[in-house]
Design a protein around this nucleic acid. Structure first.
Lengths: 209, 209
DNA sequence: CGTATTAGGAAATGATCGTTCCCAAATAGG
DNA sequence: CCTATTTGGGAACGATCATTTCCTAATACG
């Protein structure tokens, strides 16, 4: 298996001979993310995928090994994009408490409107493929552990800077906040109002007192 | 369409002529619930369904209009079963706070072990079919609203009997608890430890103070 | 007891699935 | 400038999908 297959074009890498690729893998994956998030893995056919990505079936299978490889590449890109959004927000946080608040808001905002109805690819993959595909399940698990670890670190940070009560358990609180984040994404599938999402975030802050 | 098609056998109803059905629709649906919860709607083929339910394809299509009708009937039965479990627990609750605790525990327990990996059919349907099938989305929405309403009533009950702080907002708290319940079911797909689920429940109780 | 009606179950149906094949087009290296 | 190599894209592939058909078995009703 060629490791270049699932990478975006790197202009510094030695150029292989042959006809150059006419599309950006990253842009194509962004379109795949939309379809996969909306319809799930089994609910998305290669035919729909090629229409959404603007590619012929042959081109798809030259860029990716099979349907699952497309999905996993889309999953990885989704995680990259969402992690970048999250990190950008966290950097603006003034203290631990404010960073937890911003993290909750990122998920609450993502659960609103069209994006909310589309759904979270991590949650979707956990639910649809968690008991079906080991590779997908492992990525989901890693992603969840990472998010949980971030939350735990933020709680500890808040306890260190005095913005979060010293008596609370960072591990238990992080786990509960994790439940809330994914719960928000599930509720987002049914089209909540911005007020509903906001009230969840505000009320959850009580856990930091 | 014959309304008897999706009902379990009722011995008091006037018996129709013809060969009697050799299987119990309810038992067959119980087996369908397992498969649908595990693999989702699109991930489950009629072939798998007939194997799991112990029926031939022809018999399936005599009992149900099509695959979606099987799924919706399984969804309805799932809700009946889970609602019965929940109601049984709530009746044992001593006051509002204890009832909220018991409700959290029902979801935390359901998210453990094999049943947890199997997943919640409401969450699964929301995620997989929420943006795909209007009929499924409506059932999910009704189910979520109902659960949210129960939570809100329990909070009010606790405020009335003095077990829950009078200052908290029942609507906002119910919504947050709802997020936690569904979040627990998502996390259940990755095989949490009993300690993790228990700590979520314990920590969430802080929201009632 | 015969007829109408329904269920059981296997085989057949057409559609769509994921994947491969094939050929023309476009590049790099010699 | 030719050759090797890769991509684009559409046609073709076998497999599997959901569904129907068809025949036999079992019941209710007159």
């Amino acid at each position: 298996m060629d490791s270049r297959l699932h990478q975006t074009h790197n202009p510094r890498a030695p150029r292989a001979p042959g006809r150059p690729r006419e599309f950006e893998i990253g842009e194509a994956l962004d379109k795949a993310i939309v379809v996969f998030s909306q319809q799930g893995y089994h609910g998305t056919s290669i035919s729909e995928l090629k229409d959404a990505m603007g590619l012929a079936a042959g081109s798809l299978y030259k860029a990716f090994k099979d349907k699952k490889a497309i999905f996993l590449a889309a999953f990885d890109r989704y995680k990259e994009v969402r992690n970048a959004v999250l990190e950008g927000e966290l950097q603006q946080g003034s203290d631990g408490r404010d960073k937890v608040l911003r993290m909750l808001r990122v998920y609450a905002d993502a659960s609103l409107g069209e994006a909310g109805r589309r759904g979270c690819l991590v949650v979707g993959t956990a639910v649809e493929l968690g008991a079906y595909d080991a590779e997908a399940a492992e990525r989901v698990h890693r992603s969840m552990i990472r998010t949980e670890t971030v939350l735990e670190a933020l709680v500890r940070e808040g306890q260190a800077d005095g913005s979060i009560a010293p008596g609370i358990d960072p591990v238990a609180t992080a786990r509960l906040l994790l439940s809330i984040l994914y719960g928000l994404r599930v509720l987002g599938k049914t089209g909540p109002t911005p007020e509903q999402s906001r009230s969840v975030v505000e009320t959850a802050l009580k856990l930091l007192d």
